[in-house]
Structure formats: structure tokens, C-alpha cells
């Protein structure tokens, strides 16, 4: 007689996916109240989203009616004359965010790869922790630092160096006097701010890559870097793209630090050295002192535009990250 064999997975932690507490029947008044409460709370999330969009759309309606497409394509923002063209702010938002992403992405992916694949085990947690600390610094503190450390440094050293020493002045992208507060300053501080977000999502994505994937590559004789390049990164690609787009969403909506260093000049940005404007900065500067209903409504329209853009960007990013993590 042989002893009954145990099922092979008996020692694992119980897998909970098929167990549902709500499969037990609700009993009594308390259960009903509890059920209604948590369902209401859950419904509050989509409701909030819809409500925010609806409230902003309603308030923006007068401006959309009166100003029309001028809001999107107009270049002049002149409150007393009732001209509300938000194109410079729109382009400033896109330009600063995209340039920030360009700077932050390689570094953020580098940190994520470092922490998950390459760093000595002793260093992994501390580095991940420090990156998280970077993410915890409030926007206004970044702004303060950027305004009094980064901007003077750019004005005195970096901009002359880029412009004169490297001769980049000839390029349209670097034209103009070295003001200090500029699209470049905003992009740099944005890059510093979105880096930890991208890095931490990318880290989660890389951690979701199955171990077997790595072991197989190593067993075939791959070096550590080849393992990362050929086995880990391709598997994680959509999630990593999601992480980067998530960073883009952050950058688009970032307000305080950008407002403090971008120079707040309402002109279509043509050079990294020039002051510019973003939609969020426009709101931060003018909303509290909006004069008249049309001005207010135009600002609401800008807020609606910002909301719509970040909504789409976040929806895409989350979808990519999710797909990746669910597959793992």
C-alpha cells in the first residue's frame, strides 16, 4: 500500500482567484447597507470622472460658442480685448513634455534595468528607495530649486556653453538670448520630475517578466546584457511604452514647477532658449483672478482641453501597462 500522494502545489500559498466572498448570500440589514456602501463608493470613481468632465464642459461652453476654433488655433491671448487663442499654451505644453520625455526616458529605463537586472543585490532596494524619494518631492519644491539653482546655472553656464561653445546658436532650436526662464528650464525640471514615475512603473513591468524568460536566455549562453536585450526588453516592450506614456501624462499636467521656470510668455515656442507658456501654467496664473465670465469660460475651455489630452494619454498608457502585467 502506498501513501496517498499530495497534490504537487499543496505548499504554495492558496490561489484566491476562484474564491469570492460575495458568493455567500447577503444576510440581514447590515449586509445590505454594507453592500450598498461599497458599491456606491466604487461607483463614485467613474461618477467623479464623468462629473469633472461635465462640470468643466458646461462652464467652458460659453467660450467655445463665442470664441470657437480660435481657442485652438489663435495665437493671441488678450483678456481686455476678449481674444482667447490658446495655441501657444497648447504647443508649449506639448513641446516641454515631449522634450522632457526625450531626456528622461533613457535615464528612467536605465534605472529600472539597473534595479531589476544589473545592480548588486545589496544596492537594489536602496536605489529603488531613493528613486521613490525623488517621486515624493512636492512639485513646488522642485520649482523653488529650479528657479534659484537650475535657472541661474542655465543662464550663466549651460546656455552660453550650448549656444557659443558648441555653436548650436545657428540652429533654430537654440536661437535667442540666454534668458534663464525658458522652455529648456521647464523641460529639464519636468524630466527630473517624471523620471521617477517612469522608472517605478518600468520597474514593476520588468519585475513582471517571468524568471524562466531570463533563465532560458542565460542557459543559451547569453551574457547578462544580451539576456536583458533579447529576452527581457522585448517581452516587456508594451509595458515599458506604457510607462513612458504615463510619464508623458504626468508631464502634460505638471503645474507648479513649470509655472515657476518657463517664463510665462504667451507666444508659440520656437526655441528652447525662449520663455514659453503651458496650459497648466495659464490656469495657475489667471484662474484665481479671472476677470469676467468669458475669461473664466475660456480658462475652463483650456482646462477641458488639458483634461481631454491627459485622459486620452493616461487611458492608453494604463491599457498598455495592464495588458503587460496581466499577461505575466
Amino acid at each position: 500500500m502506498t501513501a496517498p500522494t499530495l497534490p504537487p502545489v499543496a505548499h504554495r500559498r492558496p490561489v484566491r482567484t476562484d474564491v469570492r466572498v460575495d458568493a455567500t448570500p447577503a444576510r440581514g440589514y447590515g449586509d445590505r447597507v454594507y453592500g450598498v456602501f461599497i458599491t456606491t463608493c466604487a461607483l463614485a470613481v467613474p461618477a467623479l470622472l464623468v462629473l469633472v468632465a461635465a462640470v468643466i464642459a458646461r462652464s467652458a461652453w460659453p467660450a467655445i460658442e463665442q470664441v470657437g476654433t480660435e481657442l485652438l488655433v489663435g495665437r493671441t491671448w488678450d483678456v481686455p480685448r476678449g481674444q482667447f487663442g490658446a495655441l501657444p499654451a497648447l504647443l508649449g505644453t506639448l513641446a516641454s513634455s515631449l522634450f522632457a520625455l526625450l531626456l528622461a526616458t533613457p535615464l528612467a529605463l536605465g534605472v529600472a534595468i539597473y534595479v531589476t537586472e544589473l545592480a548588486p543585490l545589496r544596492l537594489r532596494k536602496p536605489v529603488a528607495f531613493l528613486v521613490d524619494v525623488l517621486a515624493a518631492i512636492p512639485s513646488v519644491v522642485y520649482g523653488l530649486w529650479a528657479l534659484y539653482v537650475l535657472v541661474p546655472f542655465l543662464r550663466e553656464h549651460a546656455m552660453p556653453f550650448l549656444g557659443e561653445t558648441l555653436g548650436l546658436r545657428e540652429l533654430a532650436l537654440f536661437r535667442g538670448p540666454a534668458y534663464g526662464p525658458s522652455l529648456l528650464a521647464a523641460s529639464l525640471v519636468l524630466a527630473i520630475m517624471v523620471l521617477p514615475y517612469i522608472a517605478s512603473v518600468a520597474r514593476e513591468v520588468l519585475q513582471a517578466v517571468p524568471r524562466a524568460q531570463r533563465e532560458a536566455a542565460l542557459a543559451l549562453g547569453a551574457t547578462r546584457w544580451e539576456m536583458v536585450r533579447d529576452a527581457v526588453l522585448p517581452y516587456a516592450r508594451s509595458g515599458l511604452v506604457g510607462a513612458v506614456i504615463l510619464g508623458l501624462g504626468r508631464a502634460l499636467g505638471e503645474t507648479m514647477a513649470v509655472t515657476m521656470v518657463i517664463g510665462n510668455r504667451h507666444e508659440v515656442p520656437t526655441s528652447l532658449f525662449q520663455p514659453a507658456y503651458t496650459m497648466a501654467s495659464l490656469l495657475a496664473n489667471e484662474f484665481a483672478e479671472a476677470s469676467g465670465e468669458l475669461h473664466l469660460s475660456a480658462l475652463m475651455a483650456v482646462a477641458g482641453l488639458l483634461l481631454a489630452i491627459t485622459l486620452v494619454v493616461n487611458a492608453i498608457a494604463r491599457w498598455l501597462v495592464w495588458r503587460m502585467e496581466r499577461r505575466a
Binding site: 468643466i56 499636467g253 494604463r318
Partner: peptide
């Protein structure tokens, strides 16, 4: 519903905080 709420929570947490400030101002 849970899937939708989970997804929208993640989307919501990525929205610019200034937009929620404007929402609070309005309501």
C-alpha cells in the same frame, strides 16, 4: 464593474491635479 472602476481609478490618479482644483472651485 470592478474592472472598469479599477481601470478608471488608475486613469483618474494620472490626471492633472490642477484640473481637480478647478472642479472643486466650480462645485
Amino acid at each position: 464593474l470592478a474592472t472598469i472602476v479599477r481601470y478608471l481609478s488608475d486613469v483618474l490618479s494620472g490626471l492633472p491635479s490642477i484640473v481637480l482644483g478647478i472642479f472643486a472651485w466650480e462645485v
